Computed example of a mutant assay.
Amino acid sequence: MSTYTLIATAAMGLEALVANEVKALGYECRTENGKVIFKGDETAIARCNLWLRTADRLKIVVGEFQAKTFDELFEKTKSLPWEQYLSANAEFPVQGKSVKSTLFSVSDCQAIVKKAIVERLRKQYKIETWLSETGPLYKIEVALLKDKATLTIDASGAGLHKRGYRVGQGGAPLKETLAAALVQLTNWHPDRPFVDPFCGSGTIPIEAALIGQNIAPGFNREFISEEWEWMPKKVWDDARLEAEDLAKYDQVLDITGSDLDHRMIDIANQNAFEAGLGDLIDFKQMQVRDFTAKKEYGVIVANPPYGERLGDRPQVEAMYEEMGRAFAPFETWSIYILTSHEEFEDCYGKQATKKRKLFNGFIRTDYYQFWGKRPPRPEKK
């Protein structure tokens, strides 16, 4: 087994959650803007792809260096041990980005990195003609930030939010990674009721169920690094076996999702079935103002419409008022609501206990947290 420098990329505001997940898997890490950096072997690559709920993707760092000229970029890229990662027939497209750097032409940087890797591989594999690029796919990225170049290989492929269960979605679907983050930022435990009154295609309830039964979010999909020659099949088999062993399929859950649109309820049911959770989540058509609950100490997580378009605002604000009235009697319930509406608390009729800045795609939002009364402590015998 070799040791690699790995990066788990994260949406702004979720770095601490991703870091906690990496630590829970047993890897020491450090956090920077938009990423969590740590060391790990081939097993770590497989386990992190399978288990990271809130990260966007996993990358392997091949090298980092200062580069202010194209010659520097070429020579330093060429000096890296690409043959340790790429086979002689590897397919390796190069993507790029440049922020606050002297080398600002991304297309030129991509072309130079590609040429440098080609020269390195041709020399190492003693190939005099063109590389065939008919083998496994390695997606390479050159990222320049303040003249520092970081060269990485994507170990995930499709983003980690693509769990493989979403067969249908609504107009503005919530990313699965953000949905998992919203659940993790609550005080919910699997033995308490969980409700999403704006469930749409069911993403938040499905992610809650995966968390509740400790099911690895990547169990239902494949990853680009599974095709690499130096990633043994046994590593993946063992990682999946571990995930199966750690799943708590017998954990009883009380999870409900509701939505005004009956078509979304049908899609939510299909998605839950695809995730293998069809019997665990109760989806029903209902308006938020009709919310009621007989149980105590439950958790509500909601991603209601934001009223981004001015014409929608009066209707959305009236709905926020309805929410405030509907939830008010349930003093033992904790309520968490994500919205970009800056006057949400005024409409809702209550000040949040706490709020946290998050980004839903490119939309800046606040996650309003209204903590319910704590359950009484069990009496000592």
Rank of each mutant, 00 (worst) to 15 (best):
93 P>S: 06
223 F>A: 14
57 R>D: 13
102 T>A: 14
371 W>K: 04
243 A>L: 03
170 G>T: 06
325 R>H: 11
177 T>F: 10
122 R>I: 10
114 K>P: 09
76 K>D: 10
51 W>N: 05
250 D>Q: 15
104 F>K: 15
171 G>V: 08
122 R>D: 11
363 I>N: 01
330 F>K: 03
279 D>V: 13
121 L>Y: 07
22 V>N: 01
112 I>A: 01
79 S>P: 03
62 V>C: 05
129 T>Y: 08
79 S>W: 03
162 K>P: 00
381 K>H: 13
198 F>I: 09
153 I>Q: 01
137 L>R: 09
317 E>R: 10
138 Y>P: 00
112 I>F: 07
273 F>A: 10
147 D>A: 04
199 C>M: 09
346 D>T: 14
65 F>A: 00
272 A>H: 05
135 G>L: 08
287 Q>R: 12
154 D>A: 04
141 E>H: 11
16 A>Q: 15
184 Q>A: 13
180 A>T: 07
247 A>W: 12
5 T>A: 03
227 E>C: 04
8 A>P: 03
53 R>F: 13
84 Q>A: 04
282 D>P: 05
7 I>A: 03
166 R>D: 06
66 Q>K: 09
242 E>C: 02
6 L>Y: 07
350 K>P: 08
276 G>N: 11
181 A>P: 11
300 I>G: 00
360 N>R: 01
366 D>I: 02
258 S>V: 09
377 R>Y: 10
44 A>N: 08
120 R>A: 12
208 A>W: 02
164 G>Q: 03
52 L>Y: 02
134 T>D: 14
184 Q>I: 06
118 V>T: 13
13 G>N: 10
200 G>P: 03
217 P>M: 10
142 V>G: 06
371 W>G: 00
123 K>G: 10
293 A>P: 00
351 Q>G: 05
58 L>H: 01
269 N>L: 02
106 V>G: 11
289 R>N: 03
91 E>D: 11
84 Q>H: 06
302 A>C: 10
148 K>F: 11
42 E>L: 06
126 K>L: 02
333 W>L: 05
121 L>K: 04
46 A>N: 06
263 R>N: 13
125 Y>Q: 06
315 Q>H: 13
2 S>A: 13
